[in-house]
């Protein structure tokens, strides 16, 4: 079945943008959208040597020729509630539903952009792989006590600390939503109390001086990069995500050196990602430091600021084979 399936969140602006392009680049495009917590009420999977894969999710027929884009959201099954039940029910869930969900959340289509599993890419994993590919990374420390931190600080002078995973944490009680917000904090030796103390294992990295930061959108070996000049603005100096809405940082097209692109491409292959957004720092000495790659990040601003038409690129990819 040669049509396109888009799995995302219904209020994601980039999904709406890409849909506009899909209906433009492919007249009469056939698109099924699986949005938000998409309920899977019925499932049928068939594999055979002749037909390869044929499946039906609810009333949507698909096969491995179907074009698939995973952007956001998740598939939920009627049986999901069961897994919070007793041990017996939990085991039943793990043996029956879970493997199917894992399979659907993986790479099963010939032409697929990202998959649900990409949500779980591990930061420490990618830093390790980058290091093994001889891509510069800012020195890392993960520790649970202030003595280790003090030693690290004395050799690196300026250190940043940030969460390993999300930039903020959301908690809900019955009545309130509690958000802990701090993206990145620069710390010096003065920020450590005299008395040694312990904390939950936390992530620290050497602070790297920036000439500018680079955000690079990667898809199938192609890099679309943008340089962000955040150093002119005190608010955005440490982390450009501390946005200044009045005077947005200058963002212009950039070209990474071919040698770096080739290493980053290798990194993506090792991480089994066919798309992602890189965060890279360029130092005043023209050295490049890899910070992270976000498999399913924001690309709208890279696309619009640099006139790259990334949404069109994605639309063309997911309507291929039709």
């Amino acid at each position: 079945m040669r049509h396109s399936i888009i799995q995302s969140e219904s209020d994601d602006p980039s999904t709406d943008d890409v849909l506009s392009w899909v209906y433009y680049v492919k007249k009469n495009a056939v698109v099924d959208t699986l949005f938000d917590a998409y309920p899977v009420n019925s499932i049928r999977l068939e594999m055979s040597n002749k037909e390869n894969l044929q499946a039906t999710i609810n009333d949507i027929n698909l096969d491995n020729e179907t074009n698939y884009w995973y952007r956001r959201g998740q598939l939920v099954s009627y049986f999901d509630t069961v897994r919070n039940g007793n041990t017996y029910q939990k085991k039943m869930y793990e043996e029956t539903i879970l493997p199917i969900q894992e399979y659907l959340n993986g790479s099963i289509y010939k032409n697929q952009l990202n998959r649900f599993q990409d949500n779980f890419t591990n930061k420490l994993d990618m830093l390790h792989l980058a290091m093994s590919l001889h891509i510069n990374i800012p020195d890392v420390l993960v520790t649970d006590n202030s003595d280790d931190l003090a030693t690290f600080l004395s050799s690196h002078k300026k250190v940043i600390t940030k969460p390993i995973k999300n930039p903020f944490i959301d908690y809900s009680t019955k009545i309130y939503n509690v958000k802990f917000l701090t993206h990145t904090k620069l710390i010096t030796i003065d920020d450590i109390p005299k008395e040694a103390f312990s904390f939950m294992p936390s992530f620290f990295q050497k602070y790297i001086e920036k000439k500018y930061e680079i955000r690079s959108f990667y898809m199938d070996g192609v890099f679309k990069s943008m340089a962000i000049f955040s150093q002119q603005n005190e608010k955005t100096k440490t982390d450009y995500r501390n946005y200044d809405r009045q005077r947005p940082n200058r963002c212009i097209p950039y070209t990474l050196p071919k040698s770096l692109e080739s290493k980053l491409h290798q990194l993506m292959i090792k991480l089994q990602l066919n798309s992602g957004s890189f965060d890279i720092i360029c130092t005043p000495e023209n050295e490049y430091y890899f910070l992270e790659v976000n498999p399913i990040g924001q690309f709208q601003w890279v696309s619009k600021n640099c006139n790259y038409y990334i949404e069109r690129m994605i639309a063309e990819k997911i309507t291929r084979h039709e």
């Binding site: 433009y24 097209p253 023209n286």
Partner: peptide
């Protein structure tokens, strides 16, 4: 001078997802 090539010229193409 060495950095000039790292900042390519802006893509001036106009395209819009609609007839």
């Amino acid at each position: 001078a060495e950095e000039l090539d790292s900042f390519p010229e802006l893509n001036l193409e106009y395209d819009y997802p609609a007839t």
